[in-house]
Each structure stands twice: as C-alpha cells, then as structure tokens.
C-alpha cells in the first residue's frame, strides 16, 4: 500500500483516539473541585484536542505532498507467524500455567521454523540444544537466582 494512504489511515485512527479521549473525559467521576481550578478532565481533553488538531494538519500536509512511495514489508508471513505464536504462548502461560514447558515449545518452534537448514535430525538436535540452553539459563536466572514466580 502507498505510504500516503497508510499515513492517512493511521492519522484517522489517531484522530479517532483524540476524539474518544475528549468524549470519555466528560464521564470522569470528579470533574471539578472547589480546590482544583482544573478538574481531572482538563488535561486529557486538552491533549485530545491537540491530537485531533495535529492529525488534521498532518493529513493536509500528507495530501499536499507530491511524492509517494510504496510500503513493502518483506517477509510479512514471518512477522504474522511470530506474533501468532507469541500470542498463543502468552495465552497458554496466562490461562494454563506451566511457564517452562510452554516456553520450551515456543522457543523450540521459533528456532526450528526460522533455521534455514533442511529438516533433519541434525537440525532437530541443534534446535533442542539451543532451546535447552536458553530455558535452563532463564530458569537459573529467574526462578533459582531471582526467586521470581513465573
């Protein structure tokens, strides 16, 4: 997609956030207090207004710009896969527990997937070796050393 179009979409999203800030600020429980000249909604509303204002200015500047470029994100499938696996790992860690077991699979999967060597026992051995070392170091550092409950 073109840089211009994506920028405009992003600016619209940020302007929406600005407007939402102003809208929701009206519902803050304590609006104003005799002691406080400006209430809890004052600063967020000001910021929301500024965000909207500068999004409009930036949008105008973007539209008026003559040059454009196409944004290419190489290997986007790698990004999506990494994000999906990360989300699954965190969800398992949060709802099931067993941090080290899930981490072992998570780290192992990513190393195996992104290692360009053809699938073989050697590759599996390397993956397990790296995986084992990483998980052991994290265990020694956090659970054993820093007494962190993961």
């Amino acid at each position: 997609m073109s840089h211009k179009k994506l920028s405009l979409m992003m600016l619209a999203a940020f302007a929406g956030i600005g407007l939402a800030m102003i809208y929701y600020a009206r519902f803050f429980r304590i609006q104003k207090h005799a002691l406080f000249v400006n209430g809890s909604q004052f600063f967020p509303m000001l910021l929301g207004g500024m965000i909207v204002l500068f999004c409009v200015v930036s949008a105008v500047a973007t539209v008026m710009r003559t040059e454009d470029e196409i944004i290419v994100i190489p290997n986007i499938q790698n990004i999506l896969l990494t994000l999906a696996v990360t989300l699954a790992w965190v969800a398992c860690w949060q709802y099931i527990g067993y941090f080290y077991a899930f981490s072992f699979f998570f780290v192992g999967f990513l190393i195996f997937r992104f290692n360009p060597a053809p699938a073989s026992l050697m590759k599996l051995r390397d993956t397990l070796m790296y995986d084992g070392v990483i998980i052991t170091v994290v265990y020694i550092l956090f659970t054993f050393g820093l007494k962190t409950n993961l």
Binding site: F106, I111, F114, F142
Partner: peptide
Amino acid sequence: PGYVLMPVIIMLTLI
C-alpha cells in the same frame, strides 16, 4: 544467528 536471538528477546521482554 538471528533465529536464536529472536525468541530470547521475546521471552525476556515479556517476562
């Protein structure tokens, strides 16, 4: 290699 660094960075960041 990057493919070893990457999961380490994700793990440490989220921990």
